[in-house]
Design a protein around this nucleic acid. Sequence first.
RNA 1: GGAGAGGUGGCCGAGUAUGGCUUAAGGCGUACGCCUGCUAAGCGUAUGAGAUUAACGUCUCCGAGGGUUCAAAUCCCUCCCUCUCCGCCA
Length: 419
Amino acid sequence: MLDRALLRNNSDRVRAAAVNKGEPCPIDEWLELDERRRSLLGETEELRRRRNELSKEVSSLKKEGKEADARILESRETGEKIASFEKDLDATDARMSELELYFPNIPDPDVPLGSDETFNRIILTVEEKPSFDFKALPHWELLGELFDQKASGSIAGSNFILLRGWAAWLQRILINWMMDFHHRADMEEIWVPFLANRESMTSTGQIPKLEDDMYHIEKDDLFLVPTGEVPLTNLYRDSILQENDLPIRIFGYSPCFRREAGSYGKDTRGLNRVHQFEKVEMVQMVKPENSEATLEKMAVHVGEMLELLNLPYRISLLATGDLSFAAAKCYDFEVWSAGQEKWLEVSSVSNFRDFQSRRGGIRYRPAGGGKLQYVHTLNGSGLALPRIMAAIIENGQTESGKIMLPKVLAERTGIEILG
RNA sequence: GGAGAGGUGGCCGAGUAUGGCUUAAGGCGUACGCCUGCUAAGCGUAUGAGAUUAACGUCUCCGAGGGUUCAAAUCCCUCCCUCUCCGCCA
């Protein structure tokens, strides 16, 4: 959500941001309503002031034992007028609030301008791609029956994952390794609910835009979380923090549920695009002046993980058209997957500035006093499991179809080769 | 799912029986000042949020939403959440 003052005074910036992100922008309707609202508000407040005044007069007249019928009558008539004004005012305000949910966040000035991912700027490539003197296989062939699509299909449906044997084991130890890595970086581990309510989904920005991409439990009006970002960020919804509570640095594991409605094609093969995947997510809440530096630090942290896992990777600064609705700036991390011979997105690290904290009411009190400020929120995947699994399996394959584990995992588990 | 008790400013906590000097007491915390070799303590002052306005000011907010009333933190209805006990259950 954007500041109403910004919408009112910088409507051109809002309009430009929406165009660059490829989002609709109901700013003209909003501006009209804003005019109307302020005028209604003035009149309503004047009437309410009068009613308050009359109430006091009635009160003191009655105390003196005098009659107050004239005042009571006027107060009643004023009340009726107020009710009619309020009805109009409430409707106007409600419509404005509804529209405000549709304004996307404004991209940072250094975000490349462009309508889609072809405008993303690759800012770093750590490219020591493995080479094989045999034909490298994609992970689904290497996994074979350990990646049991027939079973997951019959249990849940297509594009759900069922892993067996060492494949299941690898995913579990990867999750543990990732979480321990964040632990050592001095973040607080959080175990979160995997379902979230409508308010939570609205504050992080999934609702209204992505509502149809989520699994929804109608009976309880709950959503299966599409990312750990939702419960982690909403941990501090509607709260006022002290300045020395900041920065808040938390992380947690969650499965991520996405309907992926309408996305079919070759990208859906294997572990690349599925309805439920596992992910470890980091969230930080910082003072506004620190969010840019924090974004860089989080990106470095994610890069370290990929280097430890010995995965070739590259970092893209997303262009405006590829930037998500709520983000102001985002780095995407992609790892090289040798069997498929392509880059797979495994992490997004984003700065949301005050966009989510406004929606969710996450503020802090500056140490020297003064007005409450909205925190800046950031999040980053650290990391998304299935594609990391795919890359580890494909990059570590041997001619005989076994998998060499990255050193860091081999040392941790005492197991060097899978399969 | 059933019964009971609760939800009031950053936090704690009065106020609800009897609607109207509540402009929400008091405390903690915080800020500033005073005082004391330093520190701690003590004393004094200030201190909720939001909307609107050039400003003064005005209005709104006591879990959420309705209702009654000239007037609602207070009375009525619906819902949500927390705690305790019971039921069910991994």
